[in-house]
Design a protein around this nucleic acid. Structure first.
Lengths: 188, 188
DNA sequence: ACTTTTGTAGAGTGATTAGTCAATCATGAT
DNA sequence: ATCATGATTGACTAATCACTCTACAAAAGT
């Protein structure tokens, strides 16, 4: 056994995506994780805490993929593309996690998160948007709107790619091309 | 009392959005609807059937707003704008219904729907996309991808507008402008 | 060695819930 | 008036579930 806590999170993720939050009793999670019922509550004092912890863990994972090494040589567009593509690839390679996030943020559990947790820690991308506007590369729109549009775009493409199983080359084509689509939307 | 069945659906919608599916016992729905517990099961044989029925009803409502009277005088872009704006306005004016749809489609209940129910009955918009491609107005992309992108776009803008409460004039500005953003994305 | 802390187990519990049922009530047809 | 059909009720039930509790085992600290 690797680590019971990790094992519980893994099991929870799988079952939540399969059966939803209310369709997944804690007893089943414990069983799937190969631990006793009580062990689950040793690590997570309530079911709700388990759910929220799982979200935080996955979100952290995603954020880690989106860091951009400071690279002042790349153009703004290239920097954005890097972040965009990283996020998209993550969404495609981690279908289950992606589905979970989607389920979580459209559920009332979202409100159980501390506001600062919801906030995008990744303000780097917001900075890039602002910079783009200042340099008259990106349309002058509210930053939040741009952010929402880009996020929705990413969600949409992920969903599409996940739906129709594509060959790797085709996949990379779409990833690259969909960035251009997004760019045409926000660029001046 | 207008109609008990309608009243139950109304109560269910409100409570599901507030507390989620699993946070809303049928007893509470009945109470909120002002009917007895058993009455609920007279109209909907299971809780699941209630949830799915509610989704179907709301979706029907939305689809009704998106019909386009055959108007061969309008340009393709204008026709699309009409549909786009209708959908967006609906999403903004029916926040609760919008939230419910979001919650439903990212839950495992979606799989309980017959596939033909999921399918877009509103193939009119798909026809328009195809026509746009044929007439070299819209980028040559898979129809499903365009559709997904437009849907995500609508979702994003709705979310944004619902989040920040705007004055009516500002709101209409954003609606109109966001169509142009979307158009730049898909148009050649 | 011994004490403390931490991890693990799984039976047990009280509360809750989806769904049932037998009994009324309303309506309208004959 | 009588009957039939369907709507409505709310107490009831069988099952389920989140969570507790006690006991024991394994480390870790001293």
């Amino acid at each position: 056994m690797i680590d019971k806590q990790t094992e519980i999170l893994r099991a929870a993720l799988k079952l939540f995506v399969e059966n939803g939050f209310h369709g997944t009793p804690t007893s089943l999670i414990a069983k799937e994780a190969g631990v006793a019922n009580g062990t689950l509550f040793h690590y997570f004092s309530t079911k709700e805490e388990l759910i929220v912890s799982l979200y935080v863990a996955i979100k952290k994972n995603l954020s880690a993929c989106m860091v951009l090494e400071e690279d002042s040589f790349s153009s703004l567009k290239e920097q954005m593309k890097y972040i965009y593509v990283s996020a998209l690839k993550w969404g495609i390679d981690n279908t289950t996690e992606f589905r979970f996030i989607q389920q979580f943020i459209s559920s009332p559990y979202l409100l159980k998160l501390a506001p600062e947790e919801i906030q995008q820690k990744n303000t780097r991308i917001l900075q890039l948007f602002q910079q783009g506007i200042d340099e008259k590369i990106i349309k002058k729109l509210p930053i939040d709107l741009i952010n929402t549009l880009v996020n929705s775009h990413l969600f949409g493409v992920s969903q599409y790619v996940n739906q129709c199983q594509l060959a790797a080359s085709e996949r990379d084509n779409i990833i690259s091309y969909s960035f251009e689509l997004m760019w045409e939307m926000i660029a001046l």
